[in-house]
Design a protein around this nucleic acid. Structure first.
Lengths: 249, 249
DNA sequence: TCAAAAGTGTTACTAATACACCCATGT
DNA sequence: ACATGGGTGTATTAGTAACACTTTTGA
């Protein structure tokens, strides 16, 4: 996890000089999904001094499991641990990275571009997708970015390299998973209403469900526990809150 | 592709000395599925001088796409090009390889074991699964194996490292794919009978289908072209042969 | 008592399954 | 004629979808 007290330049120099602490040529990119205002969101970094966005990513320490590395990278960008995180593919075209972009980014930090520098080599990237509770996330830029924000999956800004393809593939995988591995709960707070859950499914799968049938189906799975009422302040009945019962799943 | 005229030792020395032509710490392992005698088969290498089996695998050249590398490795072990090949996961635990096994294998070739040698470092492996026509394959051992044979997926011999887990995961993925990405044809010759196709589905999914319903369903997909009769020599009607119509898929 | 949430019941439609039965055809 | 391949029809069942209607409950 990044120490907030350390100055940014120190961290940058450390990263530059300690390339041998990482597995070379191998990176991780994360597609972090969140759900807010009836929209599916993705967490993107805005590269410093460029109108270009990138997925949160990083490198794998020599003695670190790839899954651990994914979790670590995600903790750094979101402040969250114990995130639902799953691998969805490897992106290994030898020309997927592009040194013209590298050069621009690096020189914007006042560092002369060296094509032999480890970070500008060819990289094979392992794609992970994460499902998180939107409200729990503290978006945190990394060393090469000045912003970290949520974006609607429908309207993405220009993305670095093949990152648009990664988002696409992650979304395909998420849609597949949603059907038969009750994964949608991870996008909601610990307690949620049935209407919110329905919203998640409708947004991701891009179709409407009948309220009554949806409710019947979800409850019949026997993995939702009704907890209490949600007092929303309206002049009407408060909806029930449910919790995903991990014990029964 | 390996030159059959080159002596084995020359190839071995070349591989040992040219480790820098490959991406370090990154390997590919292939789960090659075939179908024969109503059984789903996997292609395994028997390691020289050890009662241990391994998946066909290899390394990625510096300027090579990972998908290309997979196809190349498969061509070397099967003699086939244009194979149906798909990635199914990355195996990246830092302790997944094991130098005691490495040592045994290497010393069996009379080469002293050097723990700093590139091949004995930690490796992250990309898993690919392939679907091939059993009869077209020419199983070919690699430098570290003395045999290359088909094995029933149900009864596998002891496997190297986490290769048993790779087979398991590949099979899971294959079962998922079979449902909604008509992939089964790749396990059969170009022309096949409906009964053979049904056999493939029944074996992989481990359940029986009603002949009539199976036939109706397959034909209703509109991607099978009936070609001719199969003269099997029996005293009965010859079954039709079908071809997978790629144009309509 | 109003408004929204939650639950029940019923009908219609669709897809999967099981099975009976007939036709085709090579020896 | 016989054995096997290939095809049709149809009853049953399970799962989805659509919708009307009732009940609950907070302000």
């Amino acid at each position: 996890m990044m120490e907030p007290s350390e100055p940014r330049d120190t961290l940058l120099i450390e990263l530059v000089e300690n390339g041998d602490r990482f597995l070379p040529h191998l990176s991780i990119d994360c597609v972090v999904f969140g759900f807010h205002a009836s929209q599916l969101k993705v967490l993107l970094l805005k590269l410093t001094n460029a109108d270009l966005y990138a997925l949160p990513g990083g490198y794998i320490y020599q003695e670190e499991d790839t899954d651990q590395a994914g979790a670590r990278i995600l903790a750094e960008r979101t402040g969250l641990t114990r995130i639902y995180l799953e691998q969805f593919g490897v992106f290994g075209r030898h020309d997927r990275t592009n040194n013209r972009v590298h050069q621009q980014i690096f020189e914007s930090f006042g560092i002369p571009f060296d094509p032999d520098f480890w970070m500008w080599k060819r990289f094979v990237s392992i794609g992970y997708y994460a499902l998180v509770d939107y409200d729990q996330v503290t978006p945190t830029p990394d060393l090469f970015s000045d912003r970290c924000d949520w974006h609607d999956v429908g309207t993405l800004p220009p993305l670095l390299f093949d990152h648009a393809r990664l988002v696409e593939k992650a979304l395909e995988t998420l849609r597949l998973m949603l059907d038969h591995k009750l994964v949608g709960f991870n996008l909601l707070p610990e307690m949620f209403t049935m209407a919110e859950l329905q919203g998640v499914y409708e947004t991701i799968l891009n179709r409407k469900f009948q309220r009554t049938n949806f409710q019947r189906k979800m409850l019949s799975l026997g993995i939702l526990e009704r907890v209490q009422k949600k007092y929303g302040g309206g002049s009407h009945k408060a909806p029930y809150l449910y919790r995903f019962d991990t014990g029964k799943a």
